[in-house]
């Protein structure tokens, strides 16, 4: 039998299936290809193999178009894996529903309570870090001139966010952090998901009539500030979702 395409002692002259498959893919050197093509034309058996190989590709394509339903147990397992990734991301970077993290306090508490001084101290340092990471250590107190934003929500439109942030930050080398402790914590959680988590600005705002928080992060270049307008931070335990972002470049001081 030569059905398998392999040459046998009586059919040494037949092409093997590999050669015919190579011929179809134009892989044979020109002279060999010519000889093989002539042979296939003259030999019904090899022609049959040739046709069968072409049809095999078509059949595989037909079969390939069909999805294969994922078995339920695999799907459930993978869903669980993704959920745990989500929780892991939340516990490492602070995004995710905070309520969900509170639901499994045991997993997080030992680490946090390792030093007896505890949570209050950590929270205090948390705020300190944001302000202290800026190494422009020339002056201490935040500027209070009229170019500073108010401590409560400032009203503006989406289009004005960039220019307004530029104005505020050009008037002080220090981070501007306003809003409730919750709002600031929410902004920092958001910042930690970004490539440059260094917070320069947290400002409660009413943007186009909607309560929002403006977050400014140190950009890649020294004068660049990545500006995000997010919702969700004004509720306790809320999570930031960005609805606008832009980059402003501060004039060098």
């Amino acid at each position: 039998m030569t059905e398998s395409g392999l040459p046998t002692s009586e059919h040494l002259e037949h092409l093997d299936t590999d050669t015919i498959a190579d011929l179809i893919e134009n892989l044979l050197p020109a002279n060999e290809a010519h000889r093989a093509r002539e042979h296939v034309k003259a030999c019904p058996e090899c022609q049959q193999t040739y046709d069968a190989l072409v049809r095999l590709s078509e059949d595989l394509a037909d079969e390939g178009r069909a999805d294969i339903p994922m078995p339920t147990d695999v799907a459930e397992h993978l869903d669980a894996v993704i959920v745990s990734e989500s929780v892991l991301r939340a516990s490492t970077v602070g995004v995710h529903s905070l309520a969900q993290i509170r639901e499994e306090p045991r997993r997080h508490l030992p680490k946090l309570l390792g030093a007896a001084a505890g949570v209050v101290l950590i929270a205090a340092i948390g705020v300190g870090v944001v302000i202290a990471t800026k190494d422009q250590a020339n002056e201490g107190a935040a500027s209070t001139d009229q170019n500073s934003p108010p401590a409560d929500a400032v009203t503006l439109t989406t289009d004005d966010i960039g220019s307004q942030v530029k104005q505020w930050l050009e008037h002080t080398p220090n981070p501007i952090v306003h809003g409730s402790a919750d709002e600031q914590a929410c902004a920092r959680s958001f910042a930690s998901t970004q490539p440059n988590p260094n917070v320069r600005l947290v400002q409660p705002a009413k943007i186009d009539g909607k309560r929002a928080t403006i977050i400014g992060l140190q950009g890649g270049a020294a004068g660049d500030i990545q500006v995000f307008a997010v919702t969700g931070c004004n509720e306790p335990g809320g999570v930031a979702s960005s609805f606008y972002d832009t980059t402003v470049t501060l004039r060098s001081r």
């Binding site: 395409g5 299936t17 590999d18 015919i20 498959a21 190579d22 892989l27 095999l56 590709s57 595989l60």
Partner: peptide, 8 residues
């Protein structure tokens, strides 16, 4: 090509 030849 070789895979098809084996699958055939």
């Amino acid at each position: 090509a070789r895979g098809r030849a084996k699958l055939l």
